[in-house]
Simulated assay, not measured.
Amino acid sequence: MSIPAFGLGTFRLKDQVVIDSVSTALELGYRCIDTAQIYGNEAEVGKALSDSGVPRDEVFITTKIWVDNLSRDMLADSLKDSLDRLRTDRVDLTLIHWPSRTVPAAESLEALARAQSDGLTRAFGISNFTTAQMQEAIDAVGAQQIATNQVELHPYLQNRKVADFARQHGIHITSYMTLAYGKVLKDPVLEAIAARHDATPVQVALAWAMQLGYAVIPSSTRRDNLESNLRSRDLRLSDEDMAQIAALDRGERLTSPASIAPEWD
């Protein structure tokens, strides 16, 4: 199953804000929505999807299992709870949100494989996994079973070791935080590239990631930004543009919660 190259992220969006964001995105033509148990907004995402009138089979829904629910005894039930909140009988993709420090990856992945067999999810994958943890996942279920590794990846943290390892094993990469919490908006290199293409720095950053083969899931609460972000799909950057963005990498990680973050590559 292929992962859509472009979708809507819902991290940090709550209550009516996330309902409005998802509703507007669906109206504009978005057909991929990314959420997670820990976001606390699955019910609101489910309401927006249900009220939108867009047929369920036309929308690709991703959710993520939180670290407290990764044991074989808890994972399936927690996913069923997510399905209830999302008002659907199955999601398209379920990810291990962060690697557990107490539950072996093999246990969680085997539970996800059973959930897939039971029809609760069409595919499953991982998020925030290092190269060593990806190898553990491959050893557990095989690389062909791992639909994606969703990781922080933006012009200032290009995560090349993880991305290269994933590519070598045929594992897709989904980039989250592609806009680096908005830092790309004022980057002079991205501004110059954007000016050459009559685009915006945000569109350039998103197009860069997609051109490298990654999926992107930017979030927004404003209709004009949601619409503008969509246009990044039509932007084609030159080899020179791509090389200039490659040179921006400085290993600047923006999210690394001490209680759950692994030892990064």
Rank of each mutant, 00 (worst) to 15 (best):
D187M: 05
A48I: 09
D249K: 03
Q211L: 03
R253G: 11
E110M: 07
A115S: 11
S228C: 04
S71N: 03
A215E: 13
Y176W: 13
H172C: 07
V18I: 11
E227F: 04
S127Y: 00
S228R: 08
I173D: 06
H154E: 06
D81S: 14
E42Y: 06
A48H: 12
D51S: 12
I138L: 00
A143T: 02
L153G: 13
D241L: 03
D77H: 08
S52T: 07
L190A: 11
P55N: 02
A209I: 01
I33R: 03
V22N: 11
E136T: 11
I146L: 10
G46Q: 02
P201I: 01
D198M: 07
D34S: 06
H169I: 00
A76N: 08
D265S: 00
R223E: 07
D73H: 06
Q16P: 15
A163P: 04
D51N: 11
H172K: 14
F165C: 00
Q158I: 00
R231E: 10
V54Q: 14
A163C: 06
T35M: 09
D239F: 14
S175L: 06
T221F: 03
V162Y: 10
Q211Y: 13
Q211E: 08
Q158D: 05
N159H: 07
N128M: 07
L254D: 13
V17K: 08
P104Y: 00
M134K: 03
R101L: 13
A199N: 09
D92F: 03
E136Y: 03
F129C: 12
